[in-house]
Design a protein around this nucleic acid. Structure first.
Lengths: 194, 194, 194, 194
DNA sequence: TATGAATGAGCGTTCATTCAT
DNA sequence: TATGAATGAACGCTCATTCAT
């Protein structure tokens, strides 16, 4: 009884997702360089060879993770753009960004680690660059929102806003327990969105 | 006839510094894991074995770098404590911190990368922890300065101050060129030290 | 399409045995410390990496050899226990032990070398200890056989018996050619098993 | 004030003896291969370079130790030859040999380890051979003593005697505590020297 | 006589990737 | 689609020995 195409598709999806989940888990816990393919496939309960069917090796797994981060960045920005007033837009950016981090600090710690990767690391720097492009794109959009708000020097203000958000993200990742997320959020919103 | 102790000391200093400089250079450029001992010793123009005379292996070099960072953190804080008024103290912290980063963004990129290292990385996490301890010590001192300023919830304010500083550091490291350092500094000082 | 589990099993057995045989050969000829992994894998006609698939490094190979020695010690003692009279039991121990050594003096030279390893050798001492435990276990059994024989001080006699056997083993290992094994055996049996 | 030749000689002797004592100590404790020159010179409180003035490197230290063993073997045999009757001579061999071992089991453990060294170990086998020659010389003398005693097959008896002695030595080295040295000695003397 | 900085070959081990099945 | 045995370059590190002083 040959499998139906749908059954194949299901199997494919299951294996590749298990692989990605395992890689995500381990990259976050141990870091990219310190995680071996062996560990990933063992955790995913899949053979080593199969990994190379679904991904372009270890780097392919990382790329898939980056793709998730980009989608997540865009979701926040897209969400902001559906809001009516500039203030609400900024509020959404601040809240969306910080809530995401707060829900999974380890994951964001990994992303921030990637962002700060040395420029010449043969593997990671490439993905740091991809993320950087995405941030720049978002920065432009955000600056225009500040402009709409009538701020004098919208790009400078936008830069401080991003810096503050980034700084809080870093703090959440460094001290995930006991971090007074709500108080920080309200201080930021008070400062930038009022 | 052996050399004089002073002559030996001079030789030792020269070699160990060459080694540390080379390691610093490469760790910053390529990252710790992606830098090999061979590269370090080649850049330092020294044999592989000699590295182990002066440092406890690759990790020893990293430790020496961390020590430099700690000394630099303490220098900023000690400098702040010599100032008279709380406002001047905070100003010194903000300026000292950001100026350091601005002068050598790549180096601080490395330190921030270290800070965001996954917790289970067998080598790096250890040094991330050491730095974290140092930050916590500084945070306490800084909170007391905010207290002296008569701020209502000094720890919360201190946390936002640190977050903002950290965020700007991250931005400087990510976009070292064209970063409007002075404008950012004045915005921060306006916000927290006035 | 993957191979059948049996096919994999066969491949594994072949490679791991080739590796163990090569290691045994070289450890015996050149000693543990003086044999390199490179030599072992070259003799086994296998890549360096494969060794680590099958054994826990160099030490794992040694452990496998020790396991063989332990099994061989137990076989002699188990054989002795199937004999009816105490005299026959002792005879079996003497003959079994010495015949084994005579058949492969170089191997036993290696084991005796291991036994006399300095206590602080970081690798070998551990295995010397494991063997020691096994000898002590056998000594107890052997002492009880002497007891059954009605000897006055069975433990002392058992100790001299073991000493003599060990001494002859040492001599066989040192002078494997022309060693009058049969004459020695009969002197020992005359002395202890009559 | 230049040193007198005697003073020089004293310094020489002191340094070279300190070196030998340190090497002896460490070789016994950790084994030849597992002891580094660095450790030896550190323990002897002498520079690395100086070692090479007094000895032909690491191997030279080993050679000096072997020389000590040979002198000690000869002393026992020479002592035996001063005795009047063959029985007394054999007694002296047995007692002299075993007492030496009992007084410093670790040292003899090292010598026995050397004796059982694999034949192709590039360093140690050479010294195993030197010792072997010495044993053969002693064996001839000892066999003649058994001949004088009127034993039928003196060489066979001499061989068993040596074997037994060696076996007891091995036991003492393996179980230096609680070893009933006197009982063993008397059993041997009873068996061979009466 | 005496020092210890310097060397570099060699070691045991890891791991991303390939490929016959 | 799926397996896991096999590879080999690269790694961090050790250490006996040399040599300028």
């Amino acid at each position: 009884m040959p499998r139906t195409p749908e059954a194949y598709e299901k199997i494919r999806k299951q294996s590749s997702e298990r692989l990605l989940t395992a890689a995500l888990d381990l990259f976050i816990k141990k870091g990219y360089h310190s995680t071996s393919i062996e560990e990933v496939t063992k955790l995913a309960q899949v053979s080593k060879g199969l990994l190379y069917h679904y991904y372009q090796g270890k780097e392919g797994l990382l790329e898939a993770m980056i793709q998730m981060r980009i989608e997540n960045l865009r979701a926040v920005m897209d969400g902001a753009l559906t809001k009516r007033t500039p203030k609400e837009k900024l509020c959404h950016i601040a809240e969306g960004t910080l809530d995401n981090v707060f829900q999974n600090p380890e994951l964001y710690r990994f992303y921030m680690n990637l962002q700060t990767q040395p420029h010449q690391d043969q593997v990671l720097a490439k993905y740091a660059d991809i993320l950087k492009k995405e941030f720049e794109r978002n920065f432009e959009i955000q600056s225009r929102i500040f402009e709409m708000l009538g701020i004098q020097d919208p790009r400078k203000r936008s830069l401080l806003f991003s810096s503050t958000l980034n700084g809080i993200m870093l703090m959440i990742c460094s001290y995930p327990d006991h971090f007074p997320i709500e108080e920080m959020k309200s201080q930021v919103i008070e400062e930038f969105c009022k």
